[in-house]
Design a protein around this nucleic acid. Structure first.
Length: 293
DNA sequence: CGCCAGGTTAGAG
DNA sequence: CTCTAACATGGC
């Protein structure tokens, strides 16, 4: 079954694809030469799909392992649309960024790059915790072990594909399960607390959907281990608030330092000042700055 | 050994 | 609200 998904003019498959390829340890999707395969759960069914650019600059999706009902097909289109943030109109962002000293080269070189999101809130929060205060490479190693050990697997053509572990699975884990994967005690505890919050019904994507940024952030930060950085990460990647951004992020700081050829990293006050110019587009400014690293 | 990496918490000013 | 120290772990 082939599905064609229309994309806006400001969409560049290449830029998004290069993001998907950024770590060989990524286990939640698998890149081919010019395509990506991913396992998702759609209305209870485990669905493996392949996505590639089609001739007329649209996206083509093939489902590999099953047949979808009309409703499931609709949900899959919804998933891909969310994953690549296809509904955001980038014209106003580009109009602003092409006159900005920090962003102008980046938006030219990565035209059409969109925030590749994480539609699953649990995955987004745990991934952010894994990325806290360590290099990204090691974070991918942690995620790989975690997903391979506790996520569901589908083998297709002799190749395994993985789903992110569910909160129910993770909530019953303890330090004895996670420390051997080289989780720090802190990451282990935070991961368990987040899973617990989902299982207890304190937290869900539905509960936060539609809230103003400040309220959604406040609810996320009630969980121990979810600070400003982690909350904003999830708000950008899962809920797609355009004005969310992780102020304390070391990557943002390094990008600014490099682009402005500073001898030191900018202070938080300096970062805030720079981001005032990006009002309403802080999330996209962040992602393009990350692209520069 | 030192410093840094896509931080968080608790506590003081 | 802002600044600081303590914490934790791998990689170069």
């Amino acid at each position: 079954m082939n599905i064609i998904i229309p994309v806006p003019k400001e969409f560049g498959f290449e830029s998004c694809f290069s993001f998907l390829q950024r770590s060989p340890k990524e286990v939640l999707h698998r890149c081919g030469v010019n395509s990506v395969r991913k396992l998702v759960r759609i209305h209870g069914a485990v669905v493996l799909f392949e996505l590639c650019p089609s001739r007329d600059l649209q996206l083509e999706v093939k489902v590999l392992n099953t047949k979808l009902s009309p409703n499931q097909k609709k949900a899959l289109i919804r998933f891909v649309t969310e994953w690549f943030d296809l509904e955001t109109d980038l014209k106003p962002f580009y109009a602003m960024a092409k006159h900005d000293a920090l962003l102008k080269d980046l938006v030219r070189d990565h035209y059409g790059y969109r925030i590749v999101g994480q539609p699953d809130l649990f995955e987004s929060l745990v991934w952010a915790v894994l990325g806290q205060q360590i290099n990204v490479q090691f974070a991918y190693a942690l995620k790989q072990r975690f997903v391979q050990q506790f996520g569901n697997t589908l083998v297709f053509d002799d190749t395994p594909y993985f789903l992110f572990p569910t909160p129910e699975t993770v909530a019953v884990l303890n330090d004895a399960d996670l420390l051997p994967l080289q989780f720090s005690r802190q990451k282990s505890k935070y991961t368990q607390l987040i899973a617990q919050a989902f299982v207890d019904g304190e937290l869900s994507k539905e509960k936060l959907s539609g809230l103003p940024l400040s309220e959604a952030k406040e609810k996320l930060m009630k969980i121990k281990g979810v600070g400003n950085w982690t909350a904003n990460y999830a708000l950008m990647k899962t809920f797609r608030y355009r004005d969310a951004f992780p102020l304390e992020d070391a990557g943002i700081h390094n990008a600014i330092r490099n682009l402005q050829k500073m001898a030191r990293k900018p202070t938080l006050a300096e970062v805030k000042h720079i981001f005032k110019k990006y009002k309403g587009w802080e999330a996209y400014a962040t992602l393009y700055l990350w692209k520069s690293l």
